[in-house]
Design a protein around this nucleic acid. Structure first.
Lengths: 202, 202
DNA sequence: CTTGTGCACGTACGATCGTTCGTATCCTAG
DNA sequence: CTAGGATACGAACGATCGTACGTGCACAAG
């Protein structure tokens, strides 16, 4: 019944490691070592490596929902909610200095040219995330917070700028990169300012 | 003496495969199979896998220089040259349907959290590319083609939008994504239009 | 013709991968 | 107290990885 104990700890580690090195480089032996467990002990929880990868993706989805999407639902619909997601996405850090969104940045790119069930799950998440962003932008337009524009286009740009910021921060070790991403989104939103544009923190 | 023969063909294949699956997933056996050669035949040209990876990075750099940077030098300095790089980056396709910039998008993300000589070479390329973009933007400002702004910030945005477009095109199979990236850069440049803004094709 | 040098080959090695199997341990239901 | 299910274990497998070694063949220099 206590499903959340060992298996959840394994998935947390897998999530963390995959965010650093990808889901393909994730190794059952390496995972076992980090968990101070045997390979078979890890393996028994999943039955195959692909199942481990798929469950890690599902775990990452629930983390993303709980830490980025749901908190933003407390904000008013539209641009305030969009901006809440942006700030959360940029500022949240797990215990090892890993951004909350870094798992997805890594995995999105890892499976861009692959095939199979894991890739399909990853692609579905990307598609869902873009659609969610688009929905939030559309609400902002209908509420006259911003000038009418193509919501899918703005969603694309938000995703592009934020993930590029996090990525360059990691690759080049430049903390300003994250701020550049956030700043670019900020100015983009200001440029679209409509009659009912909400007050945004920071 | 004919250094360009077999070794160059190997590096071309390695470049192609690494653009699809990354430099870590690149395997000497797999490369040998695609080349209809033996593992030892491939291996002998490099002496280690890391050397193969490093030479592939150098090869990719020269491809990028020859196909993106140099052609743009024919354009007038500043925004026209910047836009030439953008269009080349977006439209160029290798024979297998791989964008010219896809190698770097893949590899940039693959090594974001890794360490070692390969990562250093990859990071150096990213840093160089951003600096080059910044230089071109700065020229555009000094020539009064665009309004004064932070050239590093605009360089960041160009890189972010173009690579996100190519990436989403690959992951989600949506050809519109590429156009979104290009379009976003286009409108960003138009918004910065200065007294000597040049005519841009397309 | 002989010699030497470089390229590609087949083979084999240790390590590590995912996976399977049998077993010991613990907790819970009866 | 006993029986059964879940959990984690050690050992072992075939496959594949990077790497090393010795061989054969081509071609240019003497």
């Amino acid at each position: 019944m206590d499903d959340g104990s060992t298996k959840k700890r394994i998935l947390d580690r897998a999530y963390q490691l995959a965010g650093l090195y990808g889901l393909e480089a994730l190794t059952i032996g390496g995972l076992a070592e980090k968990m101070a467990m045997s390979k078979a002990g890890i393996y028994g929880h999943f039955g195959s490596k692909e199942a481990l990868q798929l469950e890690t993706v599902r775990h990452a989805r629930s983390v993303f929902l709980a830490e980025v999407i749901e908190p933003a639902q407390a904000e008013p619909a539209g641009i305030a909610r969009l901006w809440a997601m942006c700030t959360t996405l940029v500022s949240y850090r797990a215990e090892i200095g890993l951004h909350g969104g870094d798992f997805w940045i890594t995995v999105f790119h890892e499976y861009a040219s692959r095939s199979g069930p894991v890739r399909d799950a990853v692609e579905a998440t990307m598609t869902w995330w873009l659609r969610h962003l688009k929905t939030v932008v559309s609400a902002g337009i209908e509420l006259e917070q911003i000038t009418p524009c193509d919501p899918a286009q703005l969603a694309f740009e938000v995703q592009a700028l934020l993930s590029a910021g996090a990525h360059q921060h990691r690759l080049c070790g430049d903390p300003k990169a994250t701020a550049r991403g956030k700043s670019a989104v900020w100015h983009r939103l200001q440029a679209l300012r409509g009659p009912r544009f909400p007050a945004l923190a920071e």
